[in-house]
Every structure is written in structure tokens, then in C-alpha cells.
Amino acid sequence: MITEDDIIIVDDMRRDMSLTERFYLPQIAQGLSVTLRRMFTKRVTLQYPEMRREPKLEGDLTDPHSQLNASRYRGVHRLNRDPDGRVACVACFMCETACPAHCIHIDAAESPWPDREKYPAKFDIDELRCIYCGMCEEACPVDAIELTYEYDLVGNTRNEMIFDKGKLLEVFDETCQIKPRRNPRITGYAGTGSPDHQPARPTGEQH
């Protein structure tokens, strides 16, 4: 309920107009000069198919018209491979549970590898249904699912836009040069072949 005290009158709205304002023309001339100057400034348009924003992970990311912050952009998903080339997912269903659009479908199966219990026999993401909120990425305990910087995703049919495990791994292969996989934070599993493995956690929190 609105009480008396809630009524606030901003004094600016009540200001008497000055003579130039009442006479319109000086103000109009001012406005016209602004737009005229605007006409000769640099265009901000990016001519999309020919010009693209360059995805970068670090460095100078201050110019939003030529660079795209690859570490933050929420584009097409990928399913990461561990350093041995296997799918990193452990089929824990965290992402499927977290997904607000219910676009992730996982079939878990017993893992053929000794270091985990399960792995995804099927992993489908409906890219048309996805809202690209990134909650799957946040939920994933092993950093297996990630959103990439790829934004121009097109297809001819709806079925084509349902990405299965193989397709998602392909996306990883295509994008891992520019955006490498981050190291897993929780399981501590770093694979065997990673020379620059470092724990992601600050040392003080390690027990």
C-alpha cells in the first residue's frame, strides 16, 4: 500500500522551463547538432558473416566489437575429453537435474574404465530447447560439460539439432585449441598425460 510518505516529487520535473526551452528553437538546434555529429562518428556495426569477433581466452578483451571473451561466452555445449581422450563425464546426472529447460538426456552405463563407476552411454542435448543459461556447467562436478564460444548454430531439421555424445565430443575437438579444458576441481582425477596439472583449489583449503 502506498502511504503518504511514499509520495516523492522529483523537483526536476517541476522546474520552470527556461526562455530557450520555451522558445523551442535553440534546444532543437542543439539536438540537431548532436545527431549531425553522430552521423560522422565511427560505426559500431560488425559486418557479421565477413567480420567476426575473435574468441580469446585472455589478453586485451576491452574491445567488445572485435573480441569475444571465450572464457565466459555461453554458446554451443561441448563434452570434454580427459587427457587420455576419453569422455570426462561420470554420468552423475547433476546437469540433467539442474537443467531448467530439461534439454539434457543421459543414459548411464557401467564404466569400462577402472577409475570411475559410471560413464554416459548416451548423452543428448537438445540445442533448440536449451536456453544457454550455463547451469549444467556450474553443476558438473568434473567439469565435463562446458559451454563454448560458438554462437552461430544452424541446422535444417530439428533432429539435426539434438547433439549426441559423439557430436558434443567433436565440438570439444574443434574448440579445445582456443578454450582448453579447465582442470577438474573436485574429483582430483587429472588423467595421466597432463604435464601442467595443478589443483584448481587454493592450497589453503586442501585437506
Binding site: 516529487i9 522551463m17 520555451r22
Partner: peptide
């Protein structure tokens, strides 16, 4: 003539009371 005519006020209807009637407590200067 424009200068001598009573000053119009931005964003106000003509039948609203003059500004001086508003209580000072509610006037928030920009």
C-alpha cells in the same frame, strides 16, 4: 511575448496547482 507569458512547466498539466503549493518536504532537488 514568450518571455512575458507565464512560464510553462515541463511535464505538467495546466490545471495542476502551481509549484509553490507543494509542500517543501516532498520536493527533492535534483
Amino acid at each position: 511575448v514568450v518571455g512575458m507569458s507565464p512560464a510553462g512547466v515541463t511535464g505538467r498539466q495546466a490545471n495542476m496547482p502551481p509549484i509553490s503549493l507543494l509542500s517543501p518536504a516532498k520536493r527533492v532537488p535534483r
